[in-house]
């Protein structure tokens, strides 16, 4: 199905029932079923799934992927260092999404394809910054491909978080910030460390991942496991995954006030449907402008959009540029209730 867009050459990527596949290298990218050999863009559950025999990933991802997938069959690769799979040269480049996240470049000597995985362009002190990569064909995510998604800077958001945190201390409530436990939690913690000496309490799922981040040298703010801290109202911010809302985990903190850090918080109705009083717009995905900037910088003549607002992105590119843009159905982003 992809071949009709690049009629003169064999495509480097096909879509199969197991995921995106490069026949020339005999390797799958972020497969959604067990395969002999996989390239992994990053460790989130919709991209890194268990059961495959061999996982290639960026070196910084090794710890998290190893523990999440419970596997030792990992082949780490430093960013920017190419390796061969059959006749295909494979290179990982930083994607700026979470620690160890990578874009994957495939090159057969003639054409270059890049699979972005999930990515963002806004600065994030908890992981390596996105590097633009030129290519002929770009397979990009499109989670937030609508102009309403424009991320405010962290310089605008972080003071709001501190203000909200302090207001809760005054009201004698425990402030609980809900965010995805891999990536978002650590990003917020490095931002706190960069702006204050304040500490946080974290849910067990966040704690496990914090140790991997610290092992990779990411400067998190001081933290302790909520389970190890005394019960009662906490003046320290509690960081926990969204699933804890309405669960027994919150009971130990006395009265709580919930906020959520997510790109979806950009829309008031989404926040209110989640019954969340306060939303902070912090996303680890590219916003509309970042998506377009990345696509234009890649110089790709063909773009495939994989998950999210693929219809909008492809229509916009086809109507306003010479790029040939097509939607590509994948299993990414499925079961993803909130922004990862």
């Amino acid at each position: 199905m992809i071949s009709k867009n690049t009629p003169s050459r064999d495509p480097l990527i096909q879509r199969t029932d197991k995921g995106l596949y490069c026949p020339q290298a005999d390797v799958y990218i972020d497969p959604w079923r067990a395969v002999p050999r996989a390239l992994i863009t990053h460790a989130h559950a919709d991209h890194a799934r268990p059961g495959s025999s061999q996982y290639h990933c960026a070196s910084e991802s090794t710890g998290v992927i190893g523990s999440r997938l419970n596997t030792e069959h990992i082949v780490p690769h430093p960013y920017g260092e190419s390796f061969q799979l059959n006749d295909i040269e494979v290179t990982f480049f930083p994607a700026g999404h979470i620690l160890g996240s990578a874009q994957i470049r495939l090159h057969d000597g003639e054409q270059t394809w890049v699979i972005t995985g999930d990515y963002k362009r806004t600065p994030d002190p908890s992981c390596k910054a996105f590097e633009p990569v030129e290519c002929d064909v770009l397979i990009t995510e499109a989670t937030f491909a609508l102009p309403i998604y424009r991320w405010p800077s962290m310089d605008e958001i972080m003071p709001r978080i501190f203000r909200w945190w302090d207001a809760n201390i005054r009201a004698k409530r425990t402030p609980v910030l809900l965010c995805y436990s891999l990536g978002k939690a650590q990003r917020v913690m490095t931002e706190i460390a960069a702006r204050s000496g304040r500490g946080v309490r974290v849910h067990g799922a966040v704690a496990t991942l914090n140790t991997h981040y610290e092992a990779a040298g990411v400067p998190l703010c001081p933290w302790e496991r909520a389970a190890d801290a005394p019960k009662g109202v906490s003046q320290e911010l509690v960081i926990a995954p969204p699933q804890v809302a309405g669960s027994a985990f919150l009971k130990r903190f006395g009265p709580t006030e919930l906020a959520m850090a997510s790109g979806w918080m950009q829309v008031r109705g989404v926040r209110r449907r989640a019954a969340i009083n306060q939303g902070f717009v912090i996303s680890d995905h590219a916003d509309w402008n970042e998506l377009l900037e990345t696509i234009y910088q890649s110089n790709a003549h063909t773009v495939y959009a994989t998950h999210g607002e693929t219809r909008v992105l492809t229509r916009f590119l086809n109507e306003t540029t010479a790029i040939k843009a097509t939607r590509l159905e994948t299993a990414f982003g499925i079961n993803q209730e909130l922004d990862q």
Partner: peptide, 14 residues
């Protein structure tokens, strides 16, 4: 050039 883009935004925001 792309007035439909606004409609898409409106639908997402409600």
């Amino acid at each position: 050039e792309t007035p439909w883009l606004f409609d898409e935004c409106y639908q997402a925001v409600g």
